[in-house]
Every structure is written in structure tokens, then in C-alpha cells.
Amino acid sequence: MLRNGLEPWHLLIVAIVVIVLFGSKKLPDTARALGKSMRILKSEAKAMKDENASAPAASAPTPVEPTAVRTSAETATERPPATAG
């Protein structure tokens, strides 16, 4: 029954129903508003996708190099620098 999806006569019936519901005078305005809404939706979706793609790279932790840790034995054996005096 619906093996082929929408056939041309299905689309014709849908077009007739739309014309009857909205009237021929309102169709251009409706189509324009629908197109504008689709453009806005597309641009917002692209902005969100770009934002999500760049967010993890910006918030990734930077690797920290280990610093030398001195033990108390090492600090006890160090001598202060000699002062000229």
C-alpha cells in the first residue's frame, strides 16, 4: 500500500488541501515566512555546531610539566650563596 512512499497524486491532494486551507492570497506570505524561519533555524544550528566544536579545544587542560621537588635532606645540605663583603 505505502511501498513507494508518496506518489504524485498524493502530492497533488496535499497541495489542494493547503490551497483550500490558506487561500491563494496568503500562500506567498506563508512561503516567505517559512523560508525565513528555515534560514534562521539553519544558521542557529550551524552556530551551535561551530560553538560545540571549538568549546572542547578551548577548555582542554594544558599539560603541566613536573617541577623538581626538593626533600628536606637536600635543602639542609645546601649552603647559602657567599656574599662579598
Rank of each mutant, 00 (worst) to 15 (best):
K26H: 08
L41D: 08
P56N: 06
G85Y: 02
R70P: 01
A55R: 13
R70C: 04
P81W: 00
W9I: 11
T62I: 10
T67A: 10
A73R: 09
V17G: 09
L11Y: 06
G35T: 12
V20P: 00
N4G: 06
P28N: 08
T67M: 10
G23D: 06
D50M: 12
E44L: 14
S54Y: 04
T83A: 01
M1N: 03
K26E: 14
A82P: 02
L2E: 11
E44S: 11
L27E: 04
A76S: 07
A45I: 13
S37Q: 10
A45C: 07
A53D: 10
I16L: 14
A84L: 12
G5K: 02
M48H: 13
E7S: 05
A57I: 10
T30I: 15
E74S: 05
A53V: 08
T75R: 08
D50I: 14
E78Q: 04
E65D: 13
M38A: 14
T30Y: 14
P28D: 08
P8K: 05
K46C: 05
R79N: 04
K26P: 00
R32C: 05
T77P: 00
A47L: 13
R32D: 12
I13N: 06
P61G: 03
S54T: 14
T62Q: 04
I16H: 07
G85C: 02
P8W: 00
E78S: 00
K36H: 09
